[in-house]
């Protein structure tokens, strides 16, 4: 399957709070960031932690402005996120 996102794309992270394991850090939920680069293809960690084979999908470095994560701060945080955690986002913060 083709990758859904490319470098430069604005993405919004999921707000879901799954009962089991996930590799979407809590501080980065529901936030808008920008795809920096593709970081390979890997089975979804959430599935593997439940003993499932996991669908292999794209993993991206996604860069967030600290202010968009925490409400303040002038630094950036780059998080590595599976495609399932991401939706397209309007770069100005709304949804398309």
């Amino acid at each position: 399957m083709a990758d859904r996102f490319a470098p430069g794309d604005a993405v919004r992270t999921s707000t879901a709070d799954p009962a089991g394991h996930t590799r979407l850090p809590r501080y980065a939920r529901g936030a808008v960031g920008r795809v920096v680069e593709l970081a390979g293809h890997h089975p979804l960690a959430d599935d593997r932690a439940r003993g499932l084979p996991g669908t292999t999908q794209a993993v991206y470095h996604v860069r967030f402005a600290a202010a968009d994560l925490f409400g303040d701060g002038d630094h950036a945080v780059t998080v590595e996120l599976w495609e399932d955690y991401l939706e397209p986002a309007d770069p100005r913060g709304g949804t398309p």
Binding site: A28, A39, A45, A76, T78
Partner: peptide, 12 residues
């Protein structure tokens, strides 16, 4: 100086 934090949250 800008600060970039890298969270090793997946496979890299």
């Amino acid at each position: 100086t800008r600060i970039s934090v890298w969270d090793a949250s997946a496979e890299s």
